Measured scan of single mutants.
Amino acid sequence: DEVTIHLGDKTIRVDGLDKELLEILKELARRGADEEELRKEIERWER
Rank of each mutant, 00 (worst) to 15 (best):
K26R: 13
I12M: 06
R13A: 10
T11E: 13
R39Q: 07
D18F: 06
L21F: 05
K40S: 11
L7Y: 05
H6M: 08
V3A: 14
K10A: 13
E23M: 07
E35Q: 07
E2M: 13
T4S: 11
L17I: 15
L7K: 02
D1W: 05
L28T: 01
E41L: 08
D1C: 15
G16Q: 14
G8C: 11
K19Y: 10
R30T: 08
R39N: 05
E27F: 01
A29Q: 13
H6Q: 15
L28P: 00
E2Q: 12
I12L: 06
A29G: 06
L28C: 02
I5C: 11
R30S: 13
V3Y: 08
E43Q: 05
H6A: 12
G8M: 04
D18C: 07
E23H: 09
R47F: 04
E27I: 05
H6Y: 00
E46Y: 09
W45T: 03
K26V: 10
R31L: 13
K26W: 05
E20V: 14
H6V: 14
L17R: 11
G16E: 09
H6D: 14
L17K: 09
A29R: 08
E2K: 09
I24T: 07
D18L: 06
T11H: 11
L22I: 15
R31G: 10
D15T: 10
R39F: 08
G8R: 04
E27Q: 09
E35K: 05
E23G: 10
V14K: 05
L22M: 11
I12G: 03
L38C: 03
L21I: 06
L28F: 01
L17N: 05
T4M: 09
E35S: 08
R13G: 05
E36Q: 10
D15K: 15
E27M: 04
D18E: 10
G8L: 05
E2G: 15
D9M: 02
E27N: 10
L22W: 08
D1R: 07
R44K: 13
T11I: 14
R44N: 15
L28A: 06
E27W: 01
E36H: 13
V3K: 12
H6F: 01
V3I: 14
E20W: 08
I5G: 04
L22Q: 14
R31M: 14
L25R: 00
T4G: 08
E41V: 11
G8F: 02
I24S: 04
D34Q: 10
E37L: 09
R13E: 09
T4F: 09
K10Y: 07
L21Y: 02
K19A: 11
I24V: 11
W45C: 04
E36G: 11
G32L: 01
I5M: 02
K40P: 00
T4E: 14
G16L: 13
E37C: 10
I12D: 03
L21Q: 03
E2C: 07
L21M: 04
I24E: 02
E35V: 13
E41Y: 06
L25T: 00
E37M: 10
D34H: 07
E27R: 07
R30I: 07
L7V: 14
R31C: 15
L28I: 04
E43N: 07
D1M: 12
E2H: 13
R47K: 15
L21V: 03
G16C: 07
D34R: 09
A29F: 07
I42A: 02
